[in-house]
Design a protein around this nucleic acid. Structure first.
Lengths: 357, 357
DNA sequence: TTGTAGGCGTTATCAT
DNA sequence: ATGATAACGCCTACAA
């Protein structure tokens, strides 16, 4: 382990040329059984592993994809946005990459250092998956000039022409609201949004508006409260909401964390859920099943997001000229107690996954 | 983006040699202000990013560390071991690597493919962090022959001489039991263990035995039940336990997931927690605060594990001859409701972090 | 089946 | 302050 062995030493030790060693390692053909054994033995004895850098240089392909995600922990507030979402996407990306024989490099942008970080990654990878809110649109456009990029949960803006993978946020919220209206007859509903600049959050609110309109209920142009996608934020938002009006029949939250925060506030205010007020979330994190009442929410396939993103990326690395893909994954309504339904939970898919070119 | 630019084109475009371009990019000195601007401009115009492979080859350092972790999702049972733990370690590793200017490559070993995967990573990284249960001891020893390795939550066995980072599992469980005995006067306690071959699980049980002995209570040589570190497993384990004897005063679970499973079974059996039976966990995952009663548990610094592991790894990469380090991080008792304490939760540190050479 | 040799894109060592 | 020019370790025609 002192100093890493090279192909030359393996070649010498096994009495063949480096070309033959290379052939054997690449599982190619063109060598006798005996040589293969000799080479492999020599490699093992020397503890040799082919240098990825040298391979990458020779192949013009590192066999590595990068994943850039935002990390808000420690951003002023002590409260943290749930990391669950990002972690699941990372897992999915890892799975897809590994199964394709590649590896995935991860890096979190904290605050404004995004651009720099992306550049430092760029040289080490064959392509980059960029999660929403980790890079500005301008930076994405800039980076995309140097290497293949796929954006996640953030349909690329007008200027930027890159592949994207996202979920049907809009349809998801529409489905909850339809359930609330159709099954429970609620008419007085409010929406608690996440960070103002989150594409996910904006789409979810759009779904809320769509559903209100479709139901013939009075529309509104902005969310009734907002909570930064955190439990504490959701609590504050709902608190403020309750201070200004009598309780609504239902509170539709932009994600589960905020819904959990809402539950706490309602409980403290002696309001029964779902008796007095119904509450719903979005994401379907594990806590939705542990909390009481169990949370009705919209499940989004976080893992699939990562998988599809990496697949799309690798496809483009292999074929830079293929047409642009914008993948939208289906979400699923998960009915539990907090909306007012009885225990026997059931779930129904509400949208089809679809791919648009 | 068609084909990546190289240092040659940047050199030509800016009218200098490649050596000078290289100097500018490395933030070194030895060039005029004017040339720097010219080079940077050319680079930007061409969308050039230095090739990591070429750099790695020239420097004998990829600037990448690898992280190997086990992934049990989809191992026969539909139930999943909580991914939280691994995710936190990954986050910590990312943070430490990024702040050191490196990147981290992650890969999950599924089933028995570990060795192969490790080898494929080995060439791409400067060193490897290996989490418990992702590789056999033999494989760790083998890999460690080719490059620096740090094991996490798995003090290297006798044969293997590598750095390690872990938490004080033993002291953690000892602290809960001492609390249960000292504050609540329980004497009839049982332990629910995790996977038989998990080093963490074994150490936790050892802490349980230590505490019983120290309290002068009857010892035992094996766990009273086991649950594979999953919620469903914990439920089954406790179910079986209750079928064979009258309820104990307290059930100490090897991790939080199993404790949550236990809570479910006890509830179904009409046993009140903590009135009839006390329950404790280990890890302090988010769900411990959402579940009722809130779970008394032992917090372990999962993120720090990842950070310290990467730090140790980088230190060894820089100095292969430094002495071996075995780092043990402190755990912390977190008292909530499930042990029988009153709401006003408090927490006390129970062990000192310590480093042994 | 096997060997020879040039090239992949940077960095680092000497010169100048 | 800048420029040639060897490495760095592997792959891949092209030969033999």
């Amino acid at each position: 382990m002192a100093v890493r062995a090279t192909i030359y030493e393996v070649a010498r030790r096994s009495g063949v040329s480096t070309a033959t060693v290379s052939r054997v390692m690449r599982n190619g053909t063109g060598f006798s059984d005996a040589t293969r054994v000799r080479v492999l033995d020599a490699a093992r004895e020397l503890g040799w592993v082919p240098s990825g850098s040298a391979r990458g240089l020779a192949n013009r392909r590192a066999g590595i994809v990068g994943l850039l995600f935002p990390d808000f922990s420690g951003t002023g507030d002590a409260e943290q946005e749930s990391p669950l979402y990002v972690d699941q996407v990372i897992r999915g990306a890892e799975r897809a990459a590994t199964s394709a024989g590649d590896a995935v490099l991860i890096a979190a942008t904290r605050g404004s250092s995004g651009r720099e970080l992306a550049l430092s990654l760029a040289g080490k990878v064959d392509g980059l998956v960029v999660m929403a809110r980790s890079l500005t649109q301008a930076d994405v456009a800039s980076i995309a000039r140097s290497l293949p990029v796929v954006v996640v949960a953030n349909r690329a803006g007008r200027g930027v022409d890159v592949d994207s993978v996202g979920v049907d946020n809009r349809g998801g919220v529409r489905a909850v609201v339809e359930h609330l209206v159709g099954e429970h007859g609620y008419e007085d509903m409010v929406f608690v949004s996440g960070p103002a600049r989150s594409p996910d959050s904006m789409e979810r609110f759009a779904g809320f508006r769509d559903a209100l309109r479709a139901a013939g209920l009075p529309e509104r142009k902005s969310p009734d409260a907002s909570g930064a996608f955190t439990e504490a934020g959701g609590a504050r938002g709902v608190q403020a909401l309750l201070a200004g009006r009598r309780p609504p029949q239902a509170i539709i939250c932009g994600n589960d964390e905020m819904a959990i925060g809402a539950l706490g506030v309602l409980n403290a205010a002696k309001l029964k859920v779902p008796g007095d007020v119904a509450v719903t979330g979005f994401d379907d994190i594990a806590a939705t099943r542990h909390i009481r009442p169990q949370l009705t929410t919209v499940r989004q396939p976080m893992r699939d997001l990562g998988e599809q993103a990496v697949r799309a990326l690798l496809a483009r690395v292999d074929d830079p000229d293929r047409e642009r893909h914008d993948i939208v994954l289906a979400t699923q309504l998960v009915v539990r107690r907090s909306c007012g339904c009885r225990p026997r939970a059931s779930s129904v898919p509400n949208t089809q996954g679809r791919t648009a070119a």
